[in-house]
Design a protein around this nucleic acid. Structure first.
Lengths: 122, 122
DNA sequence: GCCACTAGTGTCAGGAATGATACCATGCCT
DNA sequence: AGGCATGGTATCATTCCTGACACTAGTGGC
């Protein structure tokens, strides 16, 4: 859950930047998308294993929101035990260059971010 | 203030994606960066005018964090009334392709994000 | 003397985001 | 009959984010 949804994109010229960010600004969404780009299709449990620090509830939430935004598809197989598959939609796939840009920058520069602040964690 | 700072980037292969996102995942940071890309150097008040919905305190906070992360420089002119200029650092400038990717995607696809969810706002 | 201007800071409060934990259904295996 | 597996939900508590509002300094103008 980012914070605010502004679907009217009239606020300012850079507003679409914000709007885009809100789609995967959720705490784990970018990671989810990233793994879906890597692996294509993933079951709930597989995603969970790839994101060890996410609680089940969080993962469900984030996936539901991605689904509601049309970025991720959710396919339920009526089996027991339950079987649900998550994959990127066509729209979701268009985010690839964005995520790649993020990753590329991170791989190159993240280490050079000097955190001078107190209250540094992790 | 994103949420967690993990400076050790060992969590998962997509971790740098998250790390990058945390740099400008703050509610207004992407917008601030965007405007600095557009205009080069901006005074506090100018930024404030470009981001009408941000409170002074928020703007200060976000700028301080961007500064702490080494993305934005803050230059104080010892005058009265106060005069402070904000600009991108060299590191900050390297984020340009990332912000551009966000904007490009937003301009093209943001409108096609269908929000099926209840609780839609704005 | 009083007010305005700029760039803040301090405090407080409300709400949202997140986490912990427990619980559910159902079919299979033993 | 009991336990396990999967993909969830429900409830509660807490922590974090954000906004509203008031306040500051120092000089110039009326």
């Amino acid at each position: 859950m980012p914070r605010i949804r502004h679907t009217t994109l009239a606020c300012s010229p850079g507003c679409t930047v914000e709007a885009t960010l809100e789609l995967f600004g959720g705490k784990w969404k970018a990671l989810i998308l990233y793994h879906l780009f890597e692996d294509g299709v993933l079951r709930f449990g597989e995603l969970r294993r790839r994101l060890p620090n996410v609680t089940q509830r969080m993962l469900t939430n984030q996936l539901r929101e991605l689904e509601a935004d049309g970025l991720v598809s959710r396919t339920v197989f009526p089996e027991v035990p339950p079987h649900v598959e998550y994959a990127l939609t066509e729209l979701g796939k268009t985010l690839k260059p964005v995520i790649q840009a993020l990753k590329k920058w991170g791989d190159r520069y993240a280490h050079s971010v000097q955190r001078n602040k107190a209250g540094d964690r992790d």
